[in-house]
């Protein structure tokens, strides 16, 4: 599934201007714990979290994730977003809580791989 399509279908708010969203999403990973994402997510996954710690971008970059969706309207600070743009990690936000957002991604056919 294509990230741009996910952004459109779920009306996500893209917080990293200028990044190409035309990229393949291999699956979804949900966690608010950085160590868990480091250990268990797979490259190309879209990461759903409410964690806005600066290191989310570093983790996504190291694991080669397709992007980060922040739930519950959590707003990352400017430094995090600058870093995301520099590392080519799209960051999107949604007003939905994790369960609802993941349910909709699952309904679109995305799975945890």
């Amino acid at each position: 599934m294509n990230l741009q399509e996910i952004v459109n279908r779920l009306s996500l708010d893209v917080k990293t201007p200028g990044l190409d969203l035309n990229r393949e999403v291999t699956g979804g990973y949900v966690s608010d714990l950085l160590s868990d994402v480091m250990g268990n997510s797979s490259g190309g996954n879209i990461w759903i979290t409410l964690q806005i710690h600066l290191n989310i971008v570093a983790v996504a970059s190291l694991k080669g994730l397709a992007g980060i969706i922040l739930v519950n309207n959590r707003r990352p600070d400017e430094d995090t977003l600058k870093r995301a743009v520099a590392e080519n990690i799209p960051v999107m936000t949604s007003a939905l809580p994790t369960f609802e957002l993941v349910g909709r991604l699952y309904a679109l056919g995305l799975r945890c791989r």
């Binding site: 608010d32 714990l33 950085l34 160590s35 409410l50 964690q51 710690h53």
Partner: peptide, 8 residues
């Protein structure tokens, strides 16, 4: 502490 689910 963060890994315990607190300190967010």
């Amino acid at each position: 502490i963060r890994e315990m689910g607190f300190g967010s």
